[in-house]
Design a protein around this nucleic acid. Structure first.
Length: 738
DNA sequence: GCAAGCCCAGATAGT
DNA sequence: CTGGGCTTGC
C-alpha cells in the first residue's frame, strides 16, 4: 500500500492495531484520510470488510468514506459505514420483536414529536402556555441521551413543572409505543438496552464487528459511548477520531468528557495527535489558535501548516445588518468565485437578509438547511401515506394523510378514532376498516372505508415510485393542490414529488449491492418501502450539498462542520448573536468558542469576519457590541476595521449613548442608522382622536386613541376592513388625515 | 355538531 | 410560508 500521501503520525494511526486508539485530529489535519486508509489497510491485510464497522456523523461523510476506500483499493468493498442512527435502525429492525416493537416501526422526527406532545398536553388538559412541548421534549431528550430513566427523573423532580414533565414523559412513551414508533433518541437507547439485556445479540454483534471505527468522536453522547463500549466488548479493537476543540453538539447531548477521558474509559488506550493542517494558510490558523487558546476544557494543541502566511484575516464592523449583508455580497460579486465561497452565521434567521441581498444583486446562492426537502408539505404528505401503509398504528401519519386532500373527515372524527385506538389497543387501520364499532355511519363512514381501501390498494404495489403515482391519481392530488396554491407552486410541488420518486429508484439501486444489511432482508414491496422510509428519516441537510454548481453557499456554522471553502465570510460577530445570548454563561461560552473555531477553520485562503452595530432581531432593532471572539484575535494575522467610537458619530439621541448602554443586553428602540427611514417625532400630529385617517396598507379608519411617548406617538386605529384595532407608531404609520 | 376557511405568530444549533 | 387556533358556514 502506498503511504506517500500520509505523514508520520497519520501512518502510525493507520497501522496501530488491537488496542483502543484515540486520534486527536485538528481541523483540516486529514482525519478522513486516516480513517479511509485504515479501513483499506485492514482489508489489504486480510480482514473481511464485513467485519468492519465505521460510524460517521452524516450520511455524506459515510458515502464519501466508502468511495475513498474503494478508490484506494480499486474495487468495491462491503464495509458497513453508516451513521449511529442508521446502524441502530438496522439492528432494531432485525430485533424489534425482542423489544416489543412490531417489525415495521416508524421513526418520528422532531416535528412528529412536537405534534404528539401537543396532543398529549391537550388530552391531559395542561395549559400549553404554562408548559411548552418544546421544553418537555428537550428534558426527555436530555434524559434519554444521558441514560436517565423516567423513574430516576421522577425521583429528582424538584418542582411542579418537573412533576408535570414526568406525567407527560410517561404518556409520551406509552403512546409512542402504541403507535409503534420511536424517536431518534430511542433508536440509540433501545439498541443499548437490547445489547445489555440480551446476551445472545450482544455476542453476535460484538463477534461480528471485529474492527470498529468512530468518526467525530467528540460529538458522541453518554448512550452512544455505551453502545460503542458494548460493541467492542469482545475484540477491544476500536479507533476513534475526533477533535475536542470541535465539539459543538452539547445541545444534542454530546458529552465532551467522552473524548477528554478516553484513556480512563478504555484500558491500554493510545493517543495520537494530528496537528499539521493541510487546508488553511497560517494567518487563518493563527486566528483559530488564538481564539481556542482561551478555552480551558481541552486537551490542547496548536495547528500549523506549510501553506505559507497567505492573506490576512479581515474584520469589518458595519453600522447595520443590512450594510453588512450588502457589503459581503458586493465583495463576493467583485471576486466572481461563487462556488468556492460560503457565508456562515450562527442562527438560521440571519440568512434572510443575506438572501435578500443575493436576490437584489443577482448572485446565485444555495441556502442549506432552510426548507429541508423532507420538510416540504407535498413530501410530508406523500410520506404520511407511505408511512401509514407500512405501519397501520401510526396515528400521526394517518391524521396528516386523511386531512389532505379533504375527505369530509374532521377533528372530531379523528379524535374519536384516536381515543378508541388508544383505549382498546386496536390499530387505526382496523378501526377505519369498520367504523361502525364507533357508531360512525353514513358519509363519514364511507369516507373512512374508502381511505382504508386506498391504503390496501397501495400495499399491493411493488415499487415505491408506482405507489406514489397511485396515491397521486387516486386522491386527485394535483387538483387538490390547485385549490390552495397557484399553478407555479403546484408545478414545483409536483416536481419535488418526482424527485422523491427518483430518490426511491436510486435507493433501490444502491440497496442491492451495498453493505447495508446485516442479514439479507428481502426486497418485497413493503419491506423495501419500510427501509426506504428509514433512510429518508435519517437524511441531513448537508447530505444534500452539490459542490459542482456555481453558486455561493449560505449556511449555519453547525451545517458547515466538515466542509471547506476557499473564501469564507462569517457574519454577525456580535455579542448576544455569536456568542448566542443563551450561551454567555461560563459553562456554555466555551462551546460557542469552539463553534467559532470550527467556523474559522473552514477557510482555506480568505477569511472575512464581520459584525453590525445595529441588527433587526425579533421584530425590532437592537444594538450589539462586537463579539468577544474578535477581540481574542490579535497580532498581525488580522486587520480590524472598527467603526469610530459610538459617542462621536452619533448625533441622534444623545442621552441613550452613555458608555455603559452597550452592556445592556437588549435595548428596544428604533434604529437611527437606517437611512431614509429616520424616526423623527413630530411636534404635533395632523390628526386627533376621532379623526378619519388613511393608511397605505390598511386603508381608511378612525383614530381611537393617541398616546404621547418619549420618542413618538402611539396611535390606536380601527380600520374599516379589519376586525381588531391596531396600535401603531405615528412616525412609521405615516397616517394621512382625510 | 362538525368541517372548512381565515388570521396570526413565529426564532439556537440538527440526527 | 407554515401550523395552530379561532370563526364562520353548512
Amino acid at each position: 500500500m502506498d503511504f506517500s500521501l500520509l505523514n508520520k503520525e497519520q501512518i502510525e494511526a493507520v497501522k496501530y492495531m488491537n488496542h483502543p486508539l484515540l486520534v486527536i485530529a485538528g481541523a483540516g489535519s486529514g482525519k478522513t484520510r486516516v480513517l479511509t486508509y485504515k479501513i483499506a489497510y485492514l482489508i489489504e491485510n486480510g480482514v473481511n470488510p464485513y467485519e468492519i464497522l465505521a460510524i460517521t456523523f452524516t450520511n455524506k461523510a459515510a458515502n464519501e468514506m466508502l468511495n475513498r476506500v474503494d478508490k484506494i483499493l480499486n474495487h468495491n468493498n462491503r464495509v458497513m459505514i453508516s451513521t449511529f442512527h442508521k446502524f441502530c435502525g438496522k439492528v432494531l429492525r432485525k430485533y424489534s420483536e425482542l423489544l416489543g416493537y412490531e417489525h415495521n416501526f416508524t421513526i418520528y422526527d422532531t416535528n412528529d414529536q412536537k405534534k404528539l406532545m401537543r396532543d398529549i398536553l391537550k388530552d391531559l388538559d395542561l395549559d400549553n402556555k404554562k408548559i411548552k412541548e418544546k421544553s418537555i421534549l428537550s428534558t426527555i431528550s436530555h434524559c434519554k441521551n444521558n441514560n436517565i430513566s423516567i423513574s430516576e427523573f421522577e425521583d429528582s423532580a424538584e418542582n411542579e413543572i418537573d412533576i408535570l414533565k414526568v406525567k407527560c414523559f410517561k404518556e409520551y412513551e406509552e403512546r409512542k409505543f402504541k403507535l409503534n414508533a420511536m424517536d431518534f433518541d430511542d433508536m440509540i437507547l433501545l439498541t443499548v438496552k437490547l445489547l445489555k439485556n440480551n446476551l445472545n445479540v450482544r455476542q453476535e454483534l460484538s463477534e461480528h464487528f471485529k474492527y470498529i471505527l468512530v468518526d467525530e468522536y467528540q460529538d458522541t453522547n453518554v448512550v452512544q459511548f455505551e453502545l460503542i463500549k458494548l460493541l467492542c466488548e469482545k475484540y477491544d479493537n476500536l479507533t476513534v477520531v475526533g477533535d475536542d476543540d470541535q465539539s459543538i453538539y452539547k445541545f444534542r447531548g454530546a458529552d465532551i468528557k467522552n473524548i477528554l477521558s478516553f484513556e480512563k474509559n478504555f484500558k491500554n488506550a493510545k493517543i495520537i495527535k494530528l496537528t499539521q493542517n493541510y487546508r488553511s494558510t497560517n494567518n487563518i490558523l493563527k486566528a483559530a489558535n488564538e481564539i481556542i487558546n482561551n478555552n480551558t476544557n481541552r486537551k490542547g494543541k496548536n495547528l500549523w501548516s506549510k501553506n505559507g502566511d497567505g492573506e490576512k484575516v479581515v474584520f469589518t464592523e458595519y453600522e447595520t445588518d443590512s450594510d453588512e449583508a450588502y457589503n459581503i455580497i458586493n465583495h463576493i460579486k467583485n471576486n466572481q468565485d461563487y462556488k468556492n465561497t460560503a457565508i456562515l452565521y450562527r442562527t438560521n434567521f440571519q440568512s434572510r437578509i443575506l438572501e435578500d441581498k443575493c436576490v437584489t444583486n443577482g448572485i446565485p446562492y444555495i441556502l442549506i438547511g432552510s426548507l429541508k426537502f423532507y420538510d416540504r408539505k407535498e413530501i410530508k404528505d406523500m410520506l404520511s401515506y407511505l408511512r401509514f401503509v407500512v405501519n397501520g398504528n401510526d396515528f400521526l401519519s394517518f391524521e396528516r394523510a386523511i386531512k389532505f386532500p379533504k375527505r369530509g373527515i374532521g377533528d372530531t372524527t379523528i379524535e374519536k378514532i384516536k381515543n378508541y385506538s388508544l383505549n382498546n389497543n386496536i390499530p387505526i387501520c382496523d378501526i377505519i376498516k369498520a367504523p361502525d364499532v364507533l357508531g360512525i355511519k353514513g358519509k363519514t363512514a364511507t369516507s373512512l372505508m374508502s381511505f382504508y381501501e386506498l391504503i390496501e390498494k397501495i400495499k399491493t404495489i411493488d415499487t415505491v415510485e408506482d405507489m406514489i403515482d397511485k396515491i397521486l391519481t387516486l386522491t386527485s392530488y394535483q387538483d387538490e393542490l390547485l385549490n390552495d396554491y397557484d399553478e407555479m407552486d403546484v408545478k414545483d410541488k409536483l416536481s419535488n414529488i418526482n424527485e422523491l420518486k427518483n430518490r426511491a429508484i436510486i435507493f433501490r439501486e444502491t440497496y442491492e449491492n451495498s453493505g447495508n444489511l446485516i442479514d439479507g432482508s428481502n426486497l418485497g414491496g413493503i419491506e423495501f418501502l419500510s427501509d426506504f422510509l428509514y433512510d429518508v428519516s435519517l437524511v441531513a441537510d448537508t447530505d444534500e450539498i452539490d459542490e459542482n454548481v456555481d453558486k455561493i453557499s449560505l449556511m449555519t456554522i453547525h451545517s458547515a462542520k466538515g466542509l471547506e471553502y476557499k473564501n469564507v465570510y462569517i457574519s454577525g460577530l456580535n455579542e448576544n448573536i455569536f456568542p448566542s445570548h443563551q450561551s454567555i454563561n461560563e459553562d456554555d461560552i466555551e462551546e460557542e468558542r469552539r463553534l467559532c473555531y470550527v467556523a474559522i477553520t473552514r477557510a482555506k485562503e480568505n477569511l472575512f469576519l464581520s459584525s453590525a452595530r445595529s441588527r433587526f432581531v425579533n421584530g425590532k432593532y437592537d444594538y450589539y457590541r462586537v463579539s468577544r471572539f474578535v477581540d481574542e484575535i490579535n497580532g498581525d494575522c488580522i486587520v480590524k476595521n472598527k467603526l469610530p467610537d459610538i459617542k462621536k458619530v452619533n448625533t441622534f439621541e444623545k442621552k441613550s449613548f452613555d458608555t455603559d448602554f452597550l452592556d445592556i443586553k437588549k435595548i428596544n428602540f428604533q434604529n437611527p442608522y437606517r437611512t431614509g427611514n429616520q424616526i423623527v417625532k413630530e411636534k404635533e400630529l395632523e390628526y386627533k382622536i376621532g379623526d378619519r385617517v388613511s393608511h397605505i396598507k390598511f386603508g381608511d379608519g378612525k383614530v381611537l386613541d393617541i398616546k404621547e411617548m418619549e420618542k413618538d406617538y402611539e396611535v390606536t386605529i380601527k380600520f374599516d376592513d379589519y376586525e381588531k384595532e391596531k396600535i401603531m407608531f405615528a412616525a412609521f404609520a405615516k397616517l394621512k388625515k382625510i
